[in-house]
Design a protein around this nucleic acid. Structure first.
Lengths: 186, 186
DNA sequence: CTGGTTTCGAAACCTGAGGTATCGAAACCT
DNA sequence: AGGTTTCGATACCTCAGGTTTCGAAACCAG
């Protein structure tokens, strides 16, 4: 008998995370971040609004989980440092270009501007895992990796927020060249 | 007698723009973007909310005017292209670090994510003048200057939004080196 | 000094979004 | 069959952006 994780009494929770994540991206993509209300997301997922708030304490934290599921682990394989840097930049650009992902990212980032608690969540749950993996893969100090993240994510989100469209391939290539030249230099 | 600009009849408008701009930056700095409501800004400026809305059609447009007044014209003097690039980056970083300016910038940018009309205002009234001046000063095509703006403003705002603090000098220097190496290269 | 025109401030109001509370019904275990 | 928890539905609260209303104030023309 497992003493650790005995099932608690009562009605078990329904496994609706995947549907909610998909409904969130769909709704954000169709209506934009602000008009993708929690109520509409719940309806799109076939779930009650209260069920959402029973699992996520705020819209911001829901979006963070959606982004974590959408991004998944960063691909940090590759031979040289330059190859690692280039692949992770292109991976981030491609993810942000997926329907709903860029809007959700820019939206939750926006909310964090006025919400210090959400800023902590964003920083610790979303940024830190990738930052630590990059520190490990590149052997760079925290400060340099944070600067790298500012440049890459900041540029991609600024383009997305300013134009409503993800950054075009040619500009992603320019971003890769510029950042690789700076970080992979000997 | 000037036939062009005869004063219109009725009570003339009070010149309150400067007070409203100052009150906006002060309130945004103290309370953050979201809690700096138009009502609070009006109160801080010693003016009625209706007076604000009689001059600016939305909070977003008010903030754009505040930013235009705070930034002023870009300093594009300097000998080499590298000097022009470096000085304009440091100027932008310093302005964004001024109390309230970075928060206001990040906040209005956030609102624009879900508001296409505001995005147009932001792009045409705030970004375009500086973009055109840069195209002229550097002799670069529009696409390259837009990429430059994405990188510089995006990085500065990402740091501000993620940490709540403006980018430190050491990182601004790294940004200058990276961007100058990319854009001033022969 | 009187009337016409416009802005001012104060207040009430509307809409929409995040988030909470209530409650009966459903699902699980013992 | 009874206890415990989650489910969906609904009503509700708070607060911010934005609008409307209206009397008072400021200007000009006659």
């Amino acid at each position: 008998m497992p003493s650790a994780a005995a099932r608690p009494p009562g009605r078990p929770r329904a496994g609706v995370d995947a549907q909610v994540f998909a409904a969130t991206l769909r709704t954000v993509h169709e209506l934009g971040y602000a008009r993708a209300t929690v109520e509409r997301i719940a309806a799109a997922a076939g779930v009650a609004k209260t069920t959402i708030y029973r699992r996520w304490p705020s819209k911001g934290e829901l979006i963070v989980d959606v982004l974590l599921a959408a991004f998944g682990p960063a691909p940090l394989v590759g031979g040289s440092r330059a190859e690692i840097l280039a692949s992770v930049i292109r991976w981030g650009a491609a993810k942000i270009a997926e329907p709903g992902v860029g809007d959700a990212f820019a939206g939750v980032f926006s909310d964090a501007v006025s919400d210090p608690a959400l800023r902590v969540v964003l920083s610790s749950r979303l940024q830190d895992p990738y930052r630590l993996a990059l520190q490990d893969a590149l052997g760079e100090p925290e400060q340099r990796v944070l600067f790298f993240v500012d440049v890459v994510v900041g540029s991609l989100l600024h383009r997305m927020g300013m134009t409503g469209e993800p950054m075009a391939d040619a500009d992603v290539t320019a971003l890769v060249e510029m950042v690789v030249a700076h970080f992979a230099a000997e």
